[in-house]
Amino acid sequence: MSDDHVYLSLAEEHEDDTRWAYGTGFEDPLHGVDTTVPDGVDRAELAALCLALGDDALVSAQRLAEWTTRAPELEEEVALANIGLDLLGQARLLYARTGQVDGTGRTEDAYAYLRDPADFRNVTLAELPGGDFAFSIARLLVLASWRLAHFERLTASPDPVLAAVAAKGAKELTYHRQYAAEWTVRLGDGTDESHRRMRAGLQQVVPYLGELFSACDVRDEVVAVLRQVTDAAGLPLPAWQPLPRAGRTGAHTEHLAPLLAELQSVARAHPGASW
């Protein structure tokens, strides 16, 4: 394990840290980083961007966690869990930055556990129910490709903290995209049944590209990746239409509330508790 691994602190003890989201034993994810907001950076816009990207990561991580004990093979269960942990780590960093610049001073736990569904700003695709393995792979391929393209641009952000978070996240997202691409090709170029399921997964997921592109202009990069993967898999890339930025404005499907209820249940049942 490399020294800069995001989860190396799991082995460290920090007895004074009693946050619900991550338990004891974690230091501030931005500890030692100069968090001064540079001159000329709009604090409200920066906070809104960090919050939205953090929500995307948190909700996606929760959906991936649903595969624990349910994945086709133990190896895939571990892989999906690790991808979820990567996204959870990204959410931590982004929520921490949000709390520093939005004027509220809220903690990571407050963003994760003490907001109602209408306060979340994740894209709709992240909150949809898990479906079968092919659907989850199709969703991971689309979200990882989109998020990676977005993060690569954010490495040039005038805010050094967001730029650093994006640079670290881009390395993780490169693997997420590769993992999803390999499974897309394996299923698409496999048996008749796996081909059918992978095709159906893409048909369910790709229409939501319209909302992703309205939230961030990386259309050409993402479409090029998806076409390369689907061509290799012998699958058509379904069409999509422009969609409103529903999730980014707090307009969600009926699926988000149950997901958050499960995610937030213990923290809300025992407010202020620690473990």
Rank of each mutant, 00 (worst) to 15 (best):
32 G>L: 08
135 F>T: 14
223 V>K: 00
257 A>K: 07
267 A>I: 06
178 Q>H: 11
156 A>T: 10
22 Y>V: 14
212 L>T: 05
242 P>N: 11
209 L>E: 12
36 T>K: 06
245 R>V: 11
206 V>Q: 01
73 E>C: 11
205 V>P: 04
130 G>F: 05
35 T>Q: 05
3 D>F: 11
197 R>K: 14
216 C>K: 01
232 A>D: 11
119 D>R: 13
3 D>W: 08
13 E>Q: 14
202 L>A: 10
198 M>T: 03
213 F>Q: 03
179 Y>A: 06
80 L>M: 14
10 L>M: 10
170 A>T: 01
62 Q>V: 13
266 V>I: 13
222 V>F: 00
257 A>Q: 08
84 G>I: 08
238 P>K: 04
275 W>N: 07
112 A>R: 10
94 L>E: 03
148 L>W: 01
226 L>M: 06
144 A>F: 02
131 G>C: 07
230 T>K: 05
115 R>Q: 14
264 Q>L: 10
72 P>S: 04
143 L>P: 03
190 G>I: 09
111 Y>I: 10
258 P>Q: 03
250 G>V: 15
231 D>V: 03
11 A>G: 09
181 A>R: 04
50 C>L: 11
226 L>H: 00
119 D>Q: 15
222 V>D: 00
126 A>G: 06
74 L>T: 13
16 D>K: 13
197 R>V: 12
156 A>H: 05
189 D>E: 11
66 E>L: 15
137 I>L: 09
96 A>Q: 12
114 L>C: 07
274 S>Y: 02
240 W>A: 05
23 G>T: 10
206 V>E: 00
185 V>G: 00
74 L>I: 14
52 A>I: 01
136 S>W: 03
178 Q>D: 11
33 V>D: 01
14 H>I: 12
216 C>P: 00
91 A>I: 09
238 P>E: 02
45 E>V: 14
74 L>G: 05
211 E>W: 07
242 P>Y: 08
181 A>T: 06
255 H>C: 12
249 T>A: 12
99 G>R: 04
2 S>G: 06
100 Q>T: 06
76 E>T: 11
24 T>N: 08
17 D>Q: 14
46 L>M: 12
176 H>E: 03
43 R>Y: 07
45 E>D: 09
186 R>A: 15
253 T>L: 09
94 L>T: 05
55 D>W: 01
28 D>A: 12
209 L>I: 15
169 G>R: 03
16 D>T: 15
25 G>R: 00
264 Q>G: 09
10 L>F: 10
238 P>L: 09
44 A>P: 03
167 A>E: 06
101 V>S: 12
198 M>N: 00
8 L>D: 08
215 A>I: 05
51 L>M: 01
84 G>P: 05
130 G>H: 08
66 E>K: 15
173 L>H: 02
68 T>V: 15
224 A>P: 04
11 A>M: 10
95 Y>P: 08
244 P>R: 01
161 V>E: 03
127 E>N: 07
96 A>D: 11
230 T>E: 01
72 P>Y: 06
139 R>S: 05
112 A>Y: 04
188 G>W: 08
2 S>E: 06
147 R>Y: 00
219 R>D: 02
202 L>Y: 04
232 A>G: 13
